[in-house]
């Protein structure tokens, strides 16, 4: 996803909606814009900064502070494996391993086709479903390593058919 075509019309609609809030609209504006663009490129961030009247450098400082905002391209599907205490106690390591094997990448990396990004994540707050896995907005848990290929296969299908 290094090359991207941005739906500027939708982006501008979001910016126009948050502009009256000024800087207090920055976080929700970035979140909503990223839902459209996948990540926050300099071009996109510049547009948000101008619309909300926030200094460029400050927008970058904000983006890099929050782990759900991306200043670099990421996959269309983000696989977040909780690897915190309760998930570890229930076998999250096996789930991380299954994801690495299936995707052929390490946590923090994106597959060459730009489809998947893998992340190990601090506690996702679903400890009663440990070990827990989140793929974009979908929740899976308790999940075992052997469930991973089936889950990610389905996501591949879903992205291809979109």
């Amino acid at each position: 996803m290094t090359e991207m075509t941005v739906d500027w019309q939708r982006v501008d609609e979001v910016i126009a909606r948050w502009a009256p809030k000024g800087r207090a609209g920055l976080l929700p504006c970035l979140e909503e814009v990223q839902e459209i663009t996948g990540w926050l490129s300099p071009e996109v961030s510049r547009r948000v900064a101008a619309g909300l009247k926030v200094p460029l450098a400050d927008v970058f400082g904000v983006i890099t502070f929050y782990s759900l905002l991306y200043e670099r391209p990421v996959g269309r599907v983000i696989v977040r494996v909780c690897d915190d205490v309760s998930c570890f106690v229930n076998g999250s390591r096996e789930v991380v391993q299954a994801c690495r094997t299936y995707l052929g990448i390490e946590p923090g990396e994106t597959t060459p086709d730009g489809m998947f990004t893998l992340e190990t994540h601090p506690c996702l707050g679903r400890c009663e479903r440990a070990p827990f896995l989140m793929v974009n907005d979908e929740e899976y848990g308790p999940v075992r390593g052997e469930d991973v290929p089936r889950i990610l296969d389905a996501w591949k299908e879903r992205v291809r058919s979109e």
Binding site: R23, G25, L26, L27, P28, L52, Y66, S67, L68, P122
Partner: peptide, 26 residues
């Protein structure tokens, strides 16, 4: 209704205010 963006420290009340105000959540 605001959504956080992935920062544990924003559970600290003043960091949460900073975050709503569009700043780094410190």
């Amino acid at each position: 209704v605001y959504r956080g963006a992935g920062a544990y420290v924003c559970g600290e009340e003043t960091a949460l205010f900073e975050s709503i105000e569009g700043k780094r959540g410190q």
